[in-house]
Amino acid sequence: MIEPLVIALSKGRILFKSLSLLKKAGIIPIESVENNRKLLFNTKKKYLNLIILRAIDVPTYVKLGAADMGIVGKDVLLENGSKGLYEPIDFKISKCRLMTAGLIGFNVKNTTRKVATKFVNIAKRYYASKGIKANIIKLYGAMELAPIMNLAEEIIDIVDTGNTLKENGMEPKTLIKNISTRLIVNKTSMIIKYKSINPLIELLISII
């Protein structure tokens, strides 16, 4: 008997790409996911269910065992810690860079600075490793505004094309980490349900 599995997907820009990847593995939701308010979907493989969550909640669901596996950006894992999870596959989709950024032509030279970001933990670790004393200001969005409005001298954010930064008179400065999408697995599920999880991992690796 195959034990039922739950896979948690992140809402937002990686949802579409994760779905098309799962489609290649034959995991297709019975109903259309787009323009649907439902959050739990059955798939054509009867033992597999999908749930759709905010990216930041995906590791929590998987860590606490409410979902067995999840697809989520490495940025979320770096920020929230991935110690209680396995992260076997790098899907190499939705690639982007986690960078510091600031106003064009303006380089902060002080060893203290104000930084606006939603990645508070990453920022703390990064600046500590550079020996910089950073005052970190937690924002939930529109980081690009912070230097313009003199709220911060630097920001840490995800940079994809760099267009949003450019339009606001800013440029990316230092690369902190390359980001891509990962498969995460609950440690207990991996052992108890390995008969269904291990073949699925191998299938997913083969189609990347």
Binding site: S82, K83, L85, Y86, E87, I89, D90, R182, I205
Partner: peptide, 11 residues
């Protein structure tokens, strides 16, 4: 150590 402990094949 972390990469192996997390079974992060790619890392």
């Amino acid at each position: 150590f972390e990469a192996i402990d997390n079974k992060s094949y790619t890392d």
